[in-house]
């Protein structure tokens, strides 16, 4: 029978493994979420990849670089930067419930 490792031989250094939502569902930090008006959104309107300021300036990386751009509201902290930086004023901050 192989020797079973003792607890002190298993618990060594404090090591982390990557997870999504390390701080929990951080979308709950704010009720206000960006909502994109696809009639104003430049890539949505033109159907061509470009602009994507909302993707570019999001500190959380929760906006997709897709047409139309999608926002992962589970982890959007509602800072409002994307609304500020949208050159087409296509984003409004609205109360959105996280399911």
């Amino acid at each position: 029978m192989p020797n079973k490792k003792k607890d002190y031989q298993i618990i060594l250094a404090s090591i982390q493994k990557p997870v999504i939502g390390e701080a929990g569902i951080t979308g709950t930090w704010s009720k206000l979420k960006p909502v994109i008006n696809s009639e104003k959104c430049i890539p949505s309107k033109s159907g061509k990849p470009g602009c994507f300021n909302c993707w570019l300036f999001c500190p959380e990386g929760v906006v997709s670089r897709t047409i139309p751009p999608k926002i992962n509201i589970e982890y959007c902290k509602g800072c409002g930067i994307c609304k500020e930086e949208c050159p087409a004023s296509a984003i409004s901050m609205e109360e959105v419930e996280i399911e």
Binding site: I20, T26, G61, R65, E74, G80
Partner: peptide, 22 residues
């Protein structure tokens, strides 16, 4: 217009960190 599409799309930070909003 061109530049933004040249940037690596993959994110290396998983969402849901402890950083303040903004």
């Amino acid at each position: 217009l061109v530049k933004v599409m040249d940037v690596q799309e993959e994110e290396y930070i998983y969402p849901g960190t402890r950083m303040c909003a903004g």
